[in-house]
Design a protein around this nucleic acid. Structure first.
Length: 239
DNA sequence: AACGAGATCAACCGCGGGATT
DNA sequence: CAATCCCGCGGTTGATCTCGT
């Protein structure tokens, strides 16, 4: 099926953005809002393709970007999320306010990969590098991931729907742990997340807005569910 | 000071998939 | 239902920066 090119390549600039281009894009989006990326360049007087404008705005010009170094907490959160979701950078970015998928992807490839390797952990599988049980068919659940019974199938479905490359690349990475009988899930939650703390607290992010401990006392229900943003609105920079 | 190697990150590319016609 | 449009994603590239020699 033929696909029309995203833009008239012959008349578009490429490469690094100039200050003037940035200013034009910012001014246009301030006045008209995001969206209609295909028609935006012409309307804004930019010789760029819509995709390029979108990327520039999302990854660099958005006012709510955090920028700066990643904190240790963010590092650990990214590692945890990657162990569950694989290279779903946009999903991971959705749980890190002010961070973009591109930024996280770059950070993963340049910093975290090396960090995990130095710990003797395979960044692709999140298993010890010399773990011979890697190829076993029967797996133990990952130690820290568990979901409340009520929502676990939804969570599993989301991961499954995402056609996680992790599960294809690493069939041993046990995503099945999300569909355990209720009592197992509860027990796993108590032991792995720790004394009924929510996932955010288990990562040391007490009092963060992702903390669901205090919601309604039903900590175990809120945890994994909320963790993937299925109960609460997934953080969305576009909103 | 000069150079090369490695690290970093902004930007590009191609594709998948939902929405629309 | 098929064709097309458009958005968004993940992988990759290449320019620039940093550091060691």
């Amino acid at each position: 099926m033929g696909r029309s090119p995203c833009c008239e390549k012959a008349h578009t600039n490429k490469g690094a953005w100039t200050k003037e281009e940035d200013d034009r894009l910012i001014a246009y989006i301030r006045a008209h809002g995001e969206g209609c990326w295909r028609s935006l360049p012409k309307a804004a007087g930019l010789l760029r393709c819509g995709k390029s404008c979108r990327l520039r705005w999302i990854n660099y010009l958005r006012p709510d970007l955090k920028r700066g170094n990643f904190t240790e907490e963010e590092d650990e959160l990214i590692i945890k999320l990657h162990s569950l979701l694989g290279n779903k950078w946009s999903l991971i970015a959705g749980r890190l306010p002010g961070r973009t998928d591109n930024e996280i992807k770059n950070y993963w490839n340049t910093h975290i990969r090396r960090k995990l390797l130095s710990r003797g952990i395979d960044p692709a599988t999140h298993r010890p590098l010399n773990d011979s049980s890697h190829h076993n068919q029967v797996q133990e659940p990952a130690p820290t991931m568990s979901f409340a019974p009520k929502q676990e199938e939804e969570v599993f479905q989301e991961v499954k729907d995402s056609k996680s490359p992790t599960s294809e690349r690493c069939p041993d990475l046990n995503l099945e742990l999300t569909i355990s009988p209720p009592h197992q899930a509860q027990e796993a939650l108590k032991t792995s997340v720790g004394r009924g703390l929510c996932f955010a607290c288990s990562l040391g992010l007490q009092n963060s807005k992702d903390c669901s401990c205090g919601d309604n006392g039903n900590t175990s229900t809120a945890t994994g569910y909320d963790f993937l943003g299925l109960k609460t609105t997934v953080l969305d920079y576009r909103s």
